[in-house]
């Protein structure tokens, strides 16, 4: 079937002449320049003490981090603190998504459940999760439970909203496909609702994840004896800038890695999703 094969499109790369300007305008070259400048600026500001003694130089931060790997800080090594924060996020995140995602789906599928849950949800939604920190300390003390609670509060909202909207924005004719082929309501939900709302649910999980990092840090800054938030607040209390900046670097790396993980998971679960160029 030739005509069919002809319908497949191919993209051809254009070749441009190679000049000095092409190097200067090359994306990767510019990235490299920018990175070098970033670290130079950081080192310069740290060395000249432009911001007082509060900014540690890059190599000081590296030494500090290397030191923390071997010498425990407040009873835990660097990896211990990373795990403390990650563990809180995982527990809170799992509890919130296990409850919120099905609830969102149910709300979208059943107008009566929606009528009961939505008003209360809308009432609680505008309160930033961080505003719950104080009350969660009053309720659960300063232990693990209060931190997990904050993460649950923070991640619940995007998980629920996205699964709710994911179902509501499904093209109604997709249900007609299943109905025409003799499917019943249950089959419509299994074959259309669930897979069609997957990308939206994953987007919700991505948002939740970044909120979860904010929440866990806020909770650890207020009261904790372990975790990355604790590391930077300890650095502040001991006036050790290398500890603060080191903590921030580690947070950035770990948060970035968890985002990558969820993206990879999404590609695995939703291979059909087209990629959009950009960030």
């Amino acid at each position: 079937m030739e005509a069919v094969a002809n319908e497949v499109q191919k993209t051809v790369r254009e070749k441009r002449p190679f000049t000095l300007l092409t190097i200067l305008k090359n994306r990767w070259f510019l990235y490299a320049v920018s990175m070098v400048f970033f670290f130079w600026l950081w080192d310069f500001v740290g060395e000249r003490r432009i911001l007082g003694s509060s900014l540690a130089r890059p190599h000081e931060v590296l030494i500090q981090l290397a030191d923390m790997v071997t010498n425990p800080l407040a009873g835990k090594s660097l990896f211990g603190h990373i795990w403390a924060s990650t563990q809180r996020i995982l527990i809170g995140f799992v509890i919130a998504s296990v409850v919120a995602v099905p609830l969102g789906l149910l709300m979208a599928l059943n107008p009566y459940i929606n009528a009961v849950v939505k008003p209360v949800f809308d009432l609680l939604k505008p309160m930033p999760p961080i505003a719950w920190i104080s009350i969660s300390i009053l309720w659960f003390g300063i232990g693990e439970a209060s931190k997990v609670f904050i993460i649950i509060i923070g991640t619940f909202v995007p998980c629920l909203l996205n699964s709710y909207n994911g179902v509501r924005l499904i093209e109604p004719e997709l249900y007609d496909v299943v109905r025409m082929l003799g499917g019943n309501r249950r089959q419509e939900i299994i074959n259309v609702c669930f897979p069609a709302s997957f990308p939206a649910i994953f987007a919700g999980l991505q948002i939740s994840l970044s909120i979860a990092w904010t929440c866990v840090l806020a909770a650890e800054l207020v009261s904790a004896r372990s975790g990355l938030g604790f590391v930077i607040i300890l650095g502040m209390n001991l006036a050790r800038p290398a500890l603060i900046v080191g903590g921030m670097v580690v947070i950035a790396v770990v948060a970035w890695l968890t985002t990558l993980l969820v993206t990879a998971l999404e590609k695995l679960v939703c291979p059909w999703k087209r990629e959009i160029e950009g960030m």
């Binding site: 093209e171 007609d176 299943v178 025409m180 003799g182 897979p195 069609a196 999703k273």
Partner: peptide
Amino acid sequence: GPDRGLVFQGYMLFPWKTVMGNVEIGPKL
């Protein structure tokens, strides 16, 4: 019902299924 087959103007294929997955959905149901 399955005694009538409908072809949609907007194709209405399931983007999460392959060609085979889309075609076999009827007997699967």
